[in-house]
Nucleic acid binder design. Sequence first.
DNA 1: TCTGATATGAGAGCACCGCTCTCGTTGTGA
DNA 2: TCACAACGAGAGCGGTGCTCTCATATCAGA
Lengths: 231, 231
Amino acid sequence: MSETKAIGVRARVRAELTIEIKRAAKAQLAVDGAAGLSLRAVARDLGMASSAVYRYFASREELLTALIIDAYNAAGLVVEQADAARDRSDHRGRFVAMARALRQWAIDNPHEYALIYGSPVPGYDAPEDTIDPATRIPVALLTVLIESRTQPRSRSKAGKEADELRQSLDGLIAFTGDLVSPSHLALGVEAWAELFGLISLELFGHFKNGITDPEFFFDHAVHTLADRIIP
Amino acid sequence: MSETKAIGVRARVRAELTIEIKRAAKAQLAVDGAAGLSLRAVARDLGMASSAVYRYFASREELLTALIIDAYNAAGLVVEQADAARDRSDHRGRFVAMARALRQWAIDNPHEYALIYGSPVPGYDAPEDTIDPATRIPVALLTVLIESRTQPRSRSKAGKEADELRQSLDGLIAFTGDLVSPSHLALGVEAWAELFGLISLELFGHFKNGITDPEFFFDHAVHTLADRIIP
DNA sequence: TCTGATATGAGAGCACCGCTCTCGTTGTGA
DNA sequence: TCACAACGAGAGCGGTGCTCTCATATCAGA
């Protein structure tokens, strides 16, 4: 009589409990940060034995990895949505919107931001599963950069310096192909770095004495940034 | 007979043990990172009871704060030395040297860098003692910016936008006075953010797939940066 | 110089942590 | 139906931060 017997009761309950555990863990994360996340506390929240949680996540680190993936995806989604809400031809507007969306998400979810863009968990080196979600934001930013450069660039500069720059950006050029010149690509990466620098410095408290209106300053900086990378 | 009786045996031993504890803690920090720092392990290293350590640092957090201060000072010193080694009139060279020195220090002391520029320890909000050492690097950078602008700027732009920018940078302008225009000051902060963005992204593993030669790229970016803020 | 206050170290102990193991129970596929 | 695998609970191990008590070593003042 049960309608979704195909999957089986056990599998469904397992899936539900898995996200329930992550939900509880996220709630704890929002309060105490990554360092304060405790498997036992999560188990207590859910009214189950601490040992039972280990049926779902083999270790605290594995649970943390799941949260990291979710955070990457959440941030990526927010940025992509901000991008999609703009006219595709308004490259400048898209860039600014994405930057603002990212900052807002970071402010709304500081611990999740810290989880993915703060100090990496010690002894933790980005398992395969995190790579893909992590690229969503850079890809979104790069896409605007590419699309703002539909007409082919003036021929790339030659010379040793240009070659070395091209080489140092090897991985990215594999993604962008010939659509963006290395020097312009470098400009994009610099903008990416500045974006995260701005958000991180603000979020981690380094603007405390100095920048009194971070939001206004961020907007100002993002527009300067846009002037630089988008013609 | 003892030569430095003025201070007292107790005080001297205390001072020595204090730095000994910090030394052991730093060694642990370099291996396991901030999250792995354990007061008990430090005590074990020094062959003393764990409770005895609490006579020197009231809590793990307080020990961490001491390490943070030391890290700020170490980084600040390295940057200041790089600055001092250059001709004072070579503003561009000074900026580039400081940036390189900072990156090198970060690479040599990743956990200490993460301690001060990564995610803040949860529930931790920069005690007074950390503020001063934390300003050393921004001050050093700002100083070059100021000194590269000895001749007074063309009169500052007027208007609402300029006023708001000036206001958003209130704290900094209190430091620089009228020597730097708000818009140029903003440029400096943006450069500061990009600098830390570049180092953090590299150090925290976000360049893994994409930038194959981070050192070369950093140098390239820093020179671009210098072009932007130094005339 | 003697003595009372004080600073220090050691040890036991509390509540918490991650993680493992065992042992019943309960769905599941053959 | 039945053997098996998945599961939850509980106990337990070694670790953590931190507190308390108690003995001892140092110091400052009479």
